[in-house]
Design a protein around this nucleic acid. Structure first.
Lengths: 136, 136
DNA sequence: CACCTTTAGGACCAATTTGATCCCTTTTAT
DNA sequence: ATAAAAGGGATCAAATTGGTCCTAAAGGTG
């Protein structure tokens, strides 16, 4: 359980590639897809999400492409993952104030703790760290 | 992301009910399903998994049903969740020694850390604790 | 302007997973 | 024998995942 989907994997691989480019260099989606070994049309959708959320800036037309919107050191793994997979919610009952059967359910506090821990870990990792990581 | 499925929710609700019964008391699947407000046939499958894994003992025929195989204080939330959802694996690459593209991937260590933390949290919660929890 | 390049966005689709249900078999007590 | 349970397999609809395709929009260039 708790598995990252392909979309999440592709998102991470793609943005790491961007982070490895010289600052300010524009990359085509075709280039990123080839480098990250990811289906191009699928990756295009992922980068659309990134652009909407302000993780990357996109430009169209000749010379267009994608650049990180912020330094890689200011983009966390959590942001990237949540951009495509949605918020980290181990159990539905973390959403509303009450579980489905009246009052917070018995395991509510446990899931809350899991959520907090995972968010904390993913917030502590930046794309810059991953991009520089020699462990390849 | 990281959401528990219905199966996981049902599993937890069902085993908590069992833990709330007087020690040694046999419960019918129909009774558990009604109390936990879970589809009976679906819950039956879940309890089959429990029985196979030795979390509960089952007996057939008149007077048959389910009982916890161990004291509720000796059954962890992790066991219950993993019984129906499979092992806690945030990323596929935690499975084999290498990621799909040669060598451990850049995020490998992060997912390993997430896995370790979640397992630790869920191992620290017993069904007994949940069953007694006044927060309902 | 016309034309090419590139992302944006929507529609669509196949495969897989999820969430069940049904039916028949096996075991066990009476 | 018979009734009462769980065991196990087949089946199925709905949702999600993983992707493709096509057209539109935007931005450079001659």
């Amino acid at each position: 359980m708790m598995e990252l989907t392909r979309k999440g994997e592709y998102a991470i691989r793609g943005i790491i590639y961007l982070a490895q480019q010289p600052p300010g260099r524009v990359s085509l989606i075709s280039e990123i897809a080839a480098a990250a070994e990811v289906p191009q049309t699928f990756l295009a959708k992922i980068f659309q999400s990134f652009a909407k959320l302000g993780l990357v800036t996109s430009s169209r037309g000749t010379g267009g492409g994608f650049v990180l919107a912020r330094p890689a050191s200011a983009i966390t793994l959590r942001e990237v993952v949540e951009a495509v997979e949605g918020p980290i919610l181990p159990n539905r009952c973390l959403l509303g104030s009450a579980c489905d059967r009246g009052g917070p359910c018995r395991v509510h506090a446990v899931w809350k703790q899991v959520q907090t821990e995972v968010v904390h870990i993913l917030d502590g990792v930046t794309i810059d760290t991953l991009a520089r990581n020699p462990e390849h």
